[in-house]
């Protein structure tokens, strides 16, 4: 599903070039549940951003579901993102003036799905994450765990092939963390590839495969 070959990436900071990724080779198969671990500065967020087409890379190649993802225009990236990827963020990134179901259905809005159909699908997803009763609530009325479940429902709405979760439990207590993780495992069980970036060993231990990064290189996978 995901094939990375010799990916390098460097940032310019004040005239200095800092290489964040120093040649990443990685193969993630369809349906895998993978965690990416590393201390801060290891390059794990950069790697995730490249996987999510939110950032470009310098050298190498990234193939997603057989398509080469390189130097995409913003428009093309937006199309691929909505086709292949679902995002789950540490800080949830829900739009605070939209209700739960509106947040969940937003990706479909950009795929020009009519409103009534959007609502129907969004309610279905909310039911799957156990929040049907909260459909008309605003994010500000929800707990952190609930918000993250809404975010997962949103990531699933467009039926993507890969779910990218960036520290999905970083803002949650251990009990809700496990709930969210269970939910992600359930999602994985439906056949979707799930990639979780985390720095918590307990979370990583629950995944099938742990990819460890250090100083821009994979040290074990």
């Amino acid at each position: 599903m995901i094939l990375l070959e010799n990916i390098t990436k460097s940032y310019e900071t004040g005239g200095n070039s800092m290489q964040v990724l120093k040649g990443i080779d990685l193969n993630i198969k369809s349906g895998e549940l993978v965690s990416i671990m590393g201390s801060s500065g290891s390059g794990k967020s950069t790697l995730l951003n490249i996987l999510g087409m939110l950032d470009n890379y310098d050298v190498g190649s990234y193939t997603l579901d057989g398509k080469l993802i390189k130097d995409l225009s913003e428009k093309k990236a937006a199309i691929y993102r909505s086709q292949f990827l679902g995002f789950v963020f540490q800080s949830f990134n829900l739009i605070n003036f939209k209700t739960a179901w509106e947040n969940v259905s937003l990706p479909l809005y950009y795929q020009k799905v009519p409103r009534s159909k959007r609502k129907e699908l969004a309610l279905q997803r909310l039911e799957e994450v156990g929040l049907l009763d909260w459909a008309e609530h605003l994010p500000s009325e929800m707990s952190g765990g609930q918000k993250q479940r809404v975010a997962i429902a949103r990531a699933l709405i467009a039926d993507p092939k890969v779910i990218l979760a960036d520290e999905p439990t970083g803002a949650l207590d251990s009990v809700t963390s496990m709930e969210v993780l269970d939910l992600l495992k359930k999602v994985n069980a439906t056949g979707k590839t799930v990639i979780i970036v985390t720095h918590e060993n307990e979370i990583a231990a629950e995944t099938e495969r742990i990819i460890r990064l250090k100083d821009g290189r994979i040290i074990s996978s």
């Binding site: 913003e74 428009k75 937006a78 199309i79 739009i95």
Partner: peptide, 8 residues
């Protein structure tokens, strides 16, 4: 957020 969710 909108752009991450597929808004060109």
């Amino acid at each position: 957020i909108r752009r991450a969710l597929g808004a060109a």
